[in-house]
């Protein structure tokens, strides 16, 4: 039919004939014919904006884009091989239906694809429990056993009394240096040092506020040198120097009088002198004792003198309070053989 029509198109007479001929057979053919007629009569439209062409330009879709890796993963694969190290989140290799983002109520948060929020947050997909386990297994061969004798805190403290505290800093920048890493702190218990009464007192005076009375800890911190090793050496030097200085007895230290004492020492005081004098008089012994003899006098021969000594010392050292005063009164009554205070 089309052949026929093409041949006879220019001839209007023939077309008319055609119409008559095909009208009997089919309506569709008839409409086709009519359309042809119209086209012939219409003017061509001038398409300045080339709208038709523009509409026809089709978006070229790439055919060579691979499907997601996550869709082709075996169920029994090793995840550590898929994600061996730290990496930014990639949606096509993570087979999880993740969503991230804030949306108003009733909406679903944005999915994992093209989601910049998921790429921003640091992920730990490379540190899954089985991977950590295998890495620990691999590292085990480089580890040595913990010394069996150092099984408790006390044992460690006993064998390693000196503690060195330093800090290492780890940061996200090309430099591994941090000025704070130079600070070295040395810490030990004062009771672990071999000191007598005089040297202990002197040591505490030397270290000053670095000694903590509550915990018996001496803390020496050094940050004046630019490198950690130098600070470490300096801290050790300070400890050695203080220790040996504490054992030194200078000539002028003997001139220390009772006024210079930082605490009440009963043996050196008038309280002991009068107690000894009173005790002698009760025994009817009248002797002139020297200062040293008073000091070295053994009060254990006097009955109840120990309690009196403690009471006086605590009253002077700890200050006056109901407790100390009561204790003092009781000890004096005991010492003098007086009856106990009656509770009214």
């Amino acid at each position: 039919m089309s052949l026929f029509m093409r041949n006879y198109k220019p001839n209007s007479l023939a077309t008319v004939y055609n119409v008559k001929l095909w009208r009997l057979n089919s309506t569709t053919a008839d409409s086709v014919m009519k359309k042809d007629d119209n086209e012939e009569e219409e003017f061509r439209v001038l398409d300045i904006l080339k709208k038709k062409d523009r509409m026809q330009r089709r978006v070229v879709r790439r055919a060579d884009i691979q499907p997601d890796r996550a869709d082709r993963m075996a169920l029994d694969q090793k995840w550590g091989n898929v994600w061996p190290g730290p990496k930014t989140f990639h949606p096509s290799s993570v087979p999880l239906p993740l969503r991230q983002g804030y949306v108003s109520k009733g909406q679903a948060p944005p999915g994992k694809k093209a989601n910049a929020e998921l790429m921003k947050i640091p992920n730990f997909l490379h540190l899954t429990p089985p991977v950590i386990k295998s890495q620990c297994e691999a590292l085990k061969q480089f580890c040595t056993e913990w010394p069996s004798l150092l099984n408790s805190e006390e044992a460690i403290e006993k064998h390693y009394p000196v503690e060195i505290i330093t800090s290492d800093y780890c940061h996200a920048s090309p430099s591994i240096r941090n000025p704070l890493a130079r600070v070295v702190t040395l810490r030990f218990k004062l009771s672990t040092l071999k000191l007598d009464k005089h040297s202990r007192d002197k040591f505490i005076r030397l270290v000053g506020e670095r000694y903590d009375k509550e915990t018996d800890l001496v803390t020496i911190t050094a940050d004046r040198c630019p490198v950690r090793v130098q600070n470490l050496d300096y801290v050790n030097y300070l400890l050695t120097a203080c220790y040996h200085e504490a054992w030194n007895v200078e000539e002028w230290e003997k001139e220390k009088t009772e006024e210079d004492m930082e605490y009440y020492e009963w043996n050196n005081n008038a309280s002991k002198k009068s107690l000894v004098n009173w005790f002698m008089r009760t025994k009817n012994e009248f002797k002139e004792l020297s200062e040293d003899e008073y000091r070295s006098f053994d009060v254990s021969v006097i009955p109840n003198a120990e309690g009196y000594k403690d009471a006086v010392s605590s009253l002077m050292n700890d200050g006056e309070s109901d407790e100390t005063v009561r204790k003092y009164g009781d000890s004096v009554r005991k010492l003098l053989g007086l009856p106990e205070k009656k509770v009214v």
Partner: peptide, 22 residues
């Protein structure tokens, strides 16, 4: 709160080093 930072480093923390350079 709803979105996170675009730069992740330790320089923008308190007392961070190399702030301006970073």
């Amino acid at each position: 709160h709803r979105k996170s930072w675009n730069s992740w480093n330790t320089s923008n923390l308190k007392d961070g080093l190399r702030r301006s350079e970073t």
